[in-house]
Design a protein around this nucleic acid. Structure first.
Length: 267
DNA sequence: CTAAGCGCCTGCATGC
DNA sequence: TGCATGCAGGCGCTTA
């Protein structure tokens, strides 16, 4: 499940492999769910023959700019961008010298076509919240986003509050900050908010250094798995000892999603 | 406006 | 072994 570190790892690999290359052809093999705001012929007409001029990321979205047109891609649960085809190809991007395959077993991936000049007006991008690793990510802005009585874990997953965290890194960041996932966000003290504010980029940075998490089927475009699952403190570790205090890790369900935490040291 | 719940989809683990 | 069941997950949509 690609979250910020996985999407950023993909982006960096694509910079090496396909940036500045010309797109020779494009083939859509899944038009029902994938294409959100355009048809396959519209996508082809806009992009084929153009060079990939920039590769950006916003939250979990990849932005591929082809001069005046941009392709915005969200991989959701099972989407992968691969240099070699796997079993569920939904889109083929035939660049000069390299071919990129969008593989997506569960068909949740979403693609938008948008004029580059209006990129940030695109609805899913426009609504995204604070972006870690940017100057806008300040403690003050973070505390503002936490002004809600909702459970802090659920708030961390809300992309309009904070962009890029998914279930894995939300669990791991709360563990780092010693905060219980069910705490109302607005009940966090200044000190707790600061701990969480600092834990989030720290966890993401460590995951990035490990090439992301391949707990699921995630692979880089070159087919390499990430290694961060070996460093999980709590995610998927129900019943195992907490690495900090030894108490058994607990699992609860919040908003239909598993939360893993240490009931002793997360308060 | 906010927040909660559902549906989308399919590989995989589990149970009988 | 084979089949049925249900879980996993992000996010857009609908509803309150």
């Amino acid at each position: 499940m690609p979250e910020l570190p996985e999407v950023e790892t993909i982006r960096r690999a694509l910079v090496q492999e396909v940036l500045h290359r010309r797109l020779r052809a494009l083939e859509v093999r899944e038009r029902v769910h994938l294409l959100q705001n355009c048809t396959a012929p519209q996508l082809e007409k806009a992009l084929v023959g153009k060079r990939l001029t920039a590769l950006d990321r916003r939250g979990k979205f990849l932005v591929l700019e082809f001069g005046p047109w941009a392709m915005v891609l969200h991989l959701r649960m099972s989407g992968r961008l691969l240099l070699h085809p796997a079993g569920h190809t939904r889109l083929v991007l035939d660049f000069e010298g390299r071919t990129l395959y969008l593989d997506d077993a569960r068909r949740f991936a979403a693609l938008y076509l948008v004029p580059t000049a209006k990129l940030w007006e695109l609805d899913p991008l426009r609504r995204l919240g604070l972006e870690p690793f940017t100057p806008s990510y300040t403690l003050e802005a973070f505390r503002e986003r936490l002004r809600s009585r909702r459970e802090v874990k659920r708030l961390l997953l809300d992309q309009t509050k904070l962009a890029g965290l998914g279930n894995i890194y939300a669990c791991e960041a709360l563990f780092e900050a010693c905060i219980h996932p069910e705490r109302p966000a607005s009940s966090l003290t200044q000190q707790e908010a600061k701990r969480l504010f600092e834990a989030i980029p720290r966890v993401l940075e460590r995951a990035l250094a490990a090439g992301g998490t391949s707990f699921d089927k995630y692979r880089t475009p070159r087919g390499e798995p990430g290694r961060f699952q070996e460093e999980f403190s709590v995610y998927g570790r129900e019943g195992e000892p907490c690495p900090r205090c030894g108490a058994p890790i607990a699992r609860i369900v919040q908003g239909g999603r598993s939360s893993f935490y240490c009931p002793e040291c997360q308060r």
